[in-house]
Amino acid sequence: MIDIQLDDQQFCWGDTLSGQFIWQSDNPDKIPKSADVLMNWFTEGRGTGDRQTVEKQPLSPQKLLDFQTRPFPFSFTIPREVPMTYDGYLFRLMWELEVKIVFPGIFRPQDRATCVFQVLPYLQRD
């Protein structure tokens, strides 16, 4: 099980997206083969779904094991000229942070969790 926590939910171009995730393995004998933290955008709606991984941070499986049940920090910079979060009539574009841990095996079992955030032209602070 993976629990992701972001320091904020709204970002602009050039902002730093930081947070942490906690991984709790349901089987302590399962050693991950690879692990990544990815920053993606994707579309949903009437059109064919588009998806792009904007940035990817590979994680060392050994380090991940050392951090098990403890917060594992991560940090990204929102690049410039990426599409903004959009909710329209025919489609919507959303951003997510994804943590993916892949285990060895024929069918590549994996633990995966995502957390949605927004990339906006300007921040709306309450």
Binding site: F42, E44, G47, G49, R51, Q52, P83, L90, F91
Partner: peptide, 15 residues
């Protein structure tokens, strides 16, 4: 909001 339909996902950069 249009009914959401998940189609085949394409990993493609911006056009």
């Amino acid at each position: 909001m249009a009914k959401i339909k998940l189609n085949k996902i394409n990993q493609n950069p911006l056009r």
